[in-house]
């Protein structure tokens, strides 16, 4: 809005800094609409959806791997304990 009014201003633009003094004021209410391409917003929305879905599936996969590792550690600990018990039985 301000820009269009400046275009209609009959006075020539001044080269002096003081004549070009500008005030920044807080916007009252919702921000002024800015034109954004609908196609771009649509593509962004779909990209975000797939990123969120992939992050969720990726986190599930990582947790499953962590559980698999813990299970492997537990199994090897049990195997070691069983081997130790067998060795003790043979000794006795």
């Amino acid at each position: 809005m301000t820009l269009s009014l400046l275009h209609l201003d009959p006075k020539p633009a001044s080269s002096l800094p003081d004549d070009r003094a500008t005030t920044f004021e807080a916007q009252q209410g919702p921000p002024i609409a800015e034109h954004r391409s609908g196609e771009q917003l649509l593509v962004e929305a779909y990209i975000f959806i797939w990123i969120i879905a992939i992050v969720f599936l990726g986190s599930m996969w990582m947790r499953q791997r962590a559980i698999g590792k813990r299970l492997g550690d537990l199994e090897s600990a049990l195997d070691r304990a069983a081997a130790k018990a067998d060795a003790k039985d043979l000794k006795d």
Binding site: P30, P31, E34, R36, L41, F48, I52
Partner: peptide, 20 residues
Amino acid sequence: TFGTMLLVTGPLWAAKAWGY
């Protein structure tokens, strides 16, 4: 997860439909 999708896609639609 799906609430995040909702909160991301809604504002992208609103940017065009409402202007913010």
